[in-house]
């Protein structure tokens, strides 16, 4: 496969190589959410809007964040934990979890 690419014109070749690189990437997803017991006025407002839409099944809404980070492999987990706990989440009010997705 790689040797085939080398025979292609440079513009096509670069594109193919980038695509190959992209295929091998995976996604780290860092979820940040408010801790239990921390009031979430945004969530409450959204919940009451859901009720106004006529649905009555939602008993609580909590708003969080997802950070999608492209990474090579899962070896960055430890570093991501450091990044999440010192920057992405404020550990006084929030907690985080990390998932990897191929």
């Amino acid at each position: 496969m790689v040797s085939d690419i080398k025979n292609l014109p440079i513009q096509v070749r670069l594109k193919s190589e980038i695509n190959i690189e992209k295929v091998s990437l995976m996604k780290a997803k860092v979820y940040v959410r408010l801790k239990n017991g921390v009031l979430d006025p945004q969530g409450q407002t959204i919940q009451s809007s859901i009720e106004r839409m006529g649905y009555d099944f939602a008993s609580e809404v909590r708003v969080g964040k997802v950070f999608e980070i492209e990474v090579k492999d899962e070896s960055c987990r430890k570093d991501l934990e450091k990044i999440a706990s010192t920057m992405l989440a404020n550990m006084i009010i929030e907690e985080y979890s990390i998932e990897f997705e191929a």
């Binding site: 921390v38 009031l39 006025p41 945004q42 407002t45 404020n90 006084i92 009010i93």
Partner: peptide, 11 residues
């Protein structure tokens, strides 16, 4: 300083 500052209660 300890603690955190969150979105106002009334948004």
């Amino acid at each position: 300083l300890p603690g955190a500052l969150m979105r106002n209660r009334g948004l």
